[in-house]
Amino acid sequence: MRTAQTGAISRRVAVGVFAAIALAACAPAEPPAVPAAPPAPAEQQQQQPAPERAPNPAADQQLLRAADDGDLDQVRAALATGANVESRDDHQRTPLLLAALADHVDVARELVKAGADPDAQDYRRDSAFLVTGVTGSVGMLEALLPANPDFALTNRYGGTALIPAGEHGHVEYVRAAVKTGIDINHVNDPGWTALLETVVLGDGSERYQEVTRLLVDAGADVNIRDRNGLTALQHAERNGYPKIAEILRSAS
């Protein structure tokens, strides 16, 4: 009797052990530990913006005066002490515009290197690049080109820099400007192109004849009419400019 009971107990123990082993085999495996991601390299971490430079009104005024006077050393000194290269005077003129108006080419180059905007306009809508068409300064034009001026920017008359250059008969400037990609046939608010202004507002002298030739050779459209329906050729004939008229006829 004892032997039978002992055997039964042994069988029950064995069954229990077998069941425990079977349950352990069916249990889901413990997922492997995932290693922590390494920290991002320093260059990939978000950089804090550089603190803005505190305004320095005294340095700004120094820069404006120096640019107007053409004092390159003072321009550099003002920039070194924190002057804002885009500071404005009472007429909203920037240092670069003041330098362009006075044709201080070396100063303009320095300001361009400092990031000056050649398209910043004053209260009369003049910009550093636009006024080169009035002054006729090829040196200033070339000094501003590295700053990528907007050749389509217009003045208070709706004209590009090339139009006043034609009006004033700036031969060498026109020779340089037509190579920049500026729109030769742009029409301003009064309805004139550079070619029309050359004929209408010029005096027919040799320099205006040369400007006419340069514009025609660069692709100026001689058939554009002004608001009165007149072409540059008709204006030349009316004004008694036979040599300009001859240039225009040959291009018609």
Rank of each mutant, 00 (worst) to 15 (best):
M1F: 00
A4S: 08
T6A: 14
T6P: 10
G7M: 15
R12D: 14
V13W: 14
V13F: 14
A14F: 14
G16L: 15
G16W: 15
V17M: 13
L23E: 02
A25T: 03
A25L: 08
A25E: 09
P32M: 13
P35F: 11
P35D: 10
P38W: 14
A40I: 13
P41D: 01
P41R: 00
P41L: 01
A42Q: 15
E43R: 05
E43I: 08
Q47D: 04
Q48T: 11
P49A: 07
P51H: 12
P55Y: 00
D60H: 09
Q61V: 15
L64W: 09
R65S: 12
A66T: 04
A77E: 06
A77M: 05
A78H: 02
L79V: 03
N84H: 03
V85N: 03
S87H: 14
R88E: 06
R88C: 05
Q92I: 11
R93M: 06
P95V: 08
L96F: 10
L98G: 00
A99V: 05
L101Y: 08
L101A: 04
L101I: 13
V105C: 10
A108C: 07
L111G: 02
G115H: 03
D117P: 07
D117T: 01
A120N: 04
A120K: 03
Q121Y: 07
D122W: 12
Y123A: 15
R125V: 09
D126M: 07
A128F: 00
F129N: 09
T132R: 02
T132Q: 09
G136I: 12
V138N: 07
E142N: 14
P149H: 06
R156D: 15
Y157P: 07
G159E: 02
T160H: 04
T160Q: 04
T160L: 10
A161N: 06
L162H: 03
I163E: 00
I163D: 02
E167I: 14
H168A: 14
H170Y: 13
R175W: 03
G181N: 00
D183L: 00
I184A: 04
N188P: 12
P190D: 14
T193V: 08
T198F: 09
L201F: 15
D203L: 06
S205H: 00
E206I: 05
Y208I: 01
Q209G: 13
E210R: 06
V211Q: 00
T212M: 04
L215H: 08
L215W: 04
V216K: 07
V216R: 10
D217S: 15
D217E: 14
A218W: 09
R225T: 06
R225K: 10
D226T: 01
G229M: 03
L233I: 12
L233N: 07
Q234C: 07
H235M: 11
A236C: 07
R238G: 10
P242N: 02
A245Q: 05
L248S: 00
